[in-house]
């Protein structure tokens, strides 16, 4: 699993969902968590953190938000060489095939459908870790 000092960015326009995700992350031992309330706020934070040599190591973002949606933030990240491999998980109330395909095409690392419980979120994080470990091993 990801080391406990992993730096997370949690993006959701609802403070309740940010609080729930932070609570689950905390239960899993992850306390280095920054919050943003939509993609338009999150994107500069991602760039600033990278520029200051303290990059985010995992982004968990809602899909359906005002200003910049989660899927658009994901596309911004994947279009930028610095964030092509940044683990990025979308949390969404939508679980229709076309959305899942759009997210996969855009390069999402994993996808969590609301409502979810802590067990599901933990499993999704583990799946991303497994993918990251495999691609790191292949690159080595």
């Amino acid at each position: 699993m990801f080391p406990k000092e992993t730096k997370f960015l949690v993006i959701d326009d609802f403070a309740t969902m940010r609080k729930i995700i932070k609570k689950v992350l905390s239960e899993l031992g992850y306390t280095n968590v920054t919050e943003a309330d939509d993609g338009a706020t999150g994107w500069p934070l991602i760039q600033q953190a990278h520029a200051s040599n303290e990059p985010f190591q995992f982004v968990i973002s809602d899909w359906n938000m005002p200003q910049m949606q989660g899927i658009d933030l994901l596309k911004h990240c994947r279009a930028d060489a610095r964030f092509k491999a940044l683990p990025f998980m979308l949390v969404t109330a939508e679980s229709e095939q076309k959305q899942i395909l759009e997210a996969a095409k855009a390069g999402v690392s994993n996808y969590v459908v609301k409502p979810f419980n802590s067990v599901t979120l933990k499993q999704k994080l583990e799946q991303v870790y497994a993918k990251v470990s495999t691609s790191t091993a292949k690159a080595a």
Binding site: F14, A15, T16, N64, A93, E94, V113, K114
Partner: peptide, 16 residues
Amino acid sequence: DAIGEIANMVYGSSKT
């Protein structure tokens, strides 16, 4: 805020 998020989830899952 929590009511809004509950509505968002209920509507999203029903919509699916």
